[in-house]
Design a protein around this nucleic acid. Structure first.
Length: 475
RNA sequence: GGCGCGUUCGUCUAGCGGUUAGGACGUCACCCUUUCAAGGUGAAGGCCACCGGUUCGAAUCCGGUACGCGCUACCA
């Protein structure tokens, strides 16, 4: 049977790097095996639904190039791919289990459950459903149904035996059935819980491998029980390690994890996100090379996935982004840069600056920070960033004299400018580096810029002279 | 508390019975140099969580302990 995997996010917010890495691994696994990658939206929690998050999820995948074969937007042989549109199948499945005696109706109120848990906690017992409704007679049930009493359907977990499985990442895992809770399968609003819905859908959609985050390990026996009760063959499970924040806690929105798209907007390249994420919990074949999705897919195996969690390191991703920017051709960088540039900026000038800025950028945003003074005369006031090497009163004099020399220059080339400037520095007993910095500040309003003479050439004679004339080092 | 999973430089990782425990990011130094980067060279950084086994020999195999993380909802 051909490999079919799915990424099944919940639209409860913008996906973060941890969520997306799970999608990545699923994608790579499918591509490696020549199988299908399915996207399914698991919107069974009405209360936590966040508008637009489905868009953000799909947009994140699109941005990274993780194309899916079947999904909510494009349909497929098992449509629909949104759980709220498949309610009937879950209700039917739940009824089937009740009929077979593998599940039962429960009329307990939330209050009673809360009270029960409080008592259990006080007695240091594991908090779990006490099966009160399992004792209900058929008359009791009929009465409650007749009065429309809200109810859920619970899984009737066997009280003995073990549920075991071979995880593709972790190997043999086993749980005592007696320790499992009678999980709610169908909520009182008629929606399924995750546990029922995944199993029903994964089976319906012929999913062969469930690659999901480690936090699901403890739920897996419940899922396996469901497969058993339905008489279905379970998929292969692969629980991938989590991505942790700097405090070694699971990456989560609540704890300040950034949304995937924030990285896009901050000027990270999609290939960097893909490659960096591949180094977390998996053995990236060559970190210094930046591989394409096809190359990563070719190398991807479940055996290569690590068991232990990985801490997300922003600095390493920064390094990789700089590396990727430098490896881009100037043409491609220009295209990537476009959304980060002021629309009024002359693209011909931008093009000339790219080779100079390239070596100095960590993110695409850095271009503007570094080069904005080429496009606006509204630069930072010189006096506020005056360097300490040359006294303020002298600086003003030097710049004035130097400016008049520049004005008489017949050629405006790198060579001519460098020669002239070095001679000026020597004539005035200034260290070249000190005078260069003074100049830099005078025409750019910055202490960090692309190389001096290249900048002056691109800026042009008129603007340089204008800026130098306006330079003010006095306070 | 219970259950589960995990543990190799600060971080990501290689290693799958015999290695001077390798690489990458970061850090530091030096070189280059016009600022900042980039680039180059080099260095520091790991008693392979701990304690017991097995073995001629253990980061690698086994057991226990500790610690960390996850789950323990009509959330996913």
């Amino acid at each position: 049977m051909s490999v079919r995997v799915r990424y099944a996010p919940s639209p409860t917010g913008h996906p973060h790097l941890g969520n997306i890495r799970t999608a990545l691994f699923n994608f790579l696994f499918a591509r490696h095996a020549g199988g299908e990658f399915v996207v399914r939206i698991e919107d069974t929690d009405r209360a936590r639904l966040v508008e637009k998050s489905e868009d953000a999820i799909l947009e994140s995948l699109r941005w990274l190039g993780l194309t899916w074969d079947e999904g909510p937007d494009k349909g497929g042989p098992f449509a629909p791919y949104v759980q709220s549109e498949r309610l009937e199948s879950y209700q039917k499945a739940a009824q089937e289990l009740v009929k077979k005696g593998f599940a039962y109706l429960c009329f307990c109120t939330q209050d009673r459950l809360a009270e029960m848990r409080k008592v259990q906690e006080a007695k240091h017992e594991p908090p779990r459903y006490d099966r009160q409704c399992l004792m209900l007679s058929s008359d009791d049930i009929r009465n409650s149904m007749d009065t429309n009493e809200p109810h859920v359907i619970r899984l009737k977990v066997p009280q003995e035996g073990k549920t075991v499985f071979e995880d593709a990442v972790r190997g043999h895992v086993e749980f005592e059935n007696a320790l499992l809770d009678d999980q709610v399968l169908l909520k009182s609003d008629g929606f399924p819980t995750y546990h029922l819905a995944v199993v029903v859908d994964d089976h319906a959609m012929n999913i062969t491998h469930v690659i999901r985050a480690e936090e699901w390990i403890s739920s897996t026996p419940k899922h396996l029980l469901l497969y058993q009760f339905f008489g279905w063959t379970p998929p292969t499970y692969a629980h991938v390690p989590m991505i942790m924040d700097a405090h070694k806690a699971k990456l989560s929105k609540r704890r300040g994890a950034k949304a995937m798209l924030e990285y896009r907007d901050a000027g990270y390249l999609p290939e960097v996100v893909v490659n960096y994420l591949s180094t977390l919990g998996w053995m990236h074949p060559n970190e210094e090379k930046l591989l394409t999705l096809d190359e990563l897919a070719a190398a991807f195996t479940l055996e290569g996935i690590k068991k232990s969690p990985a801490v997300f390191d922003q600095r390493k991703m920064d390094w990789m982004n700089g590396l990727a920017i430098r490896q881009l051709t100037d043409e491609k960088l220009l295209i990537a840069l476009d959304p980060f540039l002021d629309s009024g900026w002359d693209r011909h000038v931008v093009k000339k600056l790219i080779p100079l800025a390239k070596e100095r950028m960590t993110t695409l945003k850095d271009f503007s920070v570094l080069c904005d003074f080429f496009f606006t005369n509204n630069i930072q006031k010189n006096e506020s960033i005056m360097n300490q090497k040359i006294a303020v009163d002298k600086a003003q004099t030097f710049i004035r004299r130097y400016t008049s020399i520049l004005a008489s220059l017949t050629q405006w080339t790198h060579e001519e400018l460098e020669q002239t400037t070095r001679k000026f520095a020597a004539d005035h007993q200034l260290k070249p580096a000190d005078f260069f910095m003074l100049l830099r500040i005078a025409f750019s309003g910055k202490t960090i810029t692309p190389p001096l003479f290249e900048s002056m050439v691109i800026l042009g004679k008129d603007i340089v002279i204008q800026r130098l004339s306006e330079a003010n080092f006095r306070c």
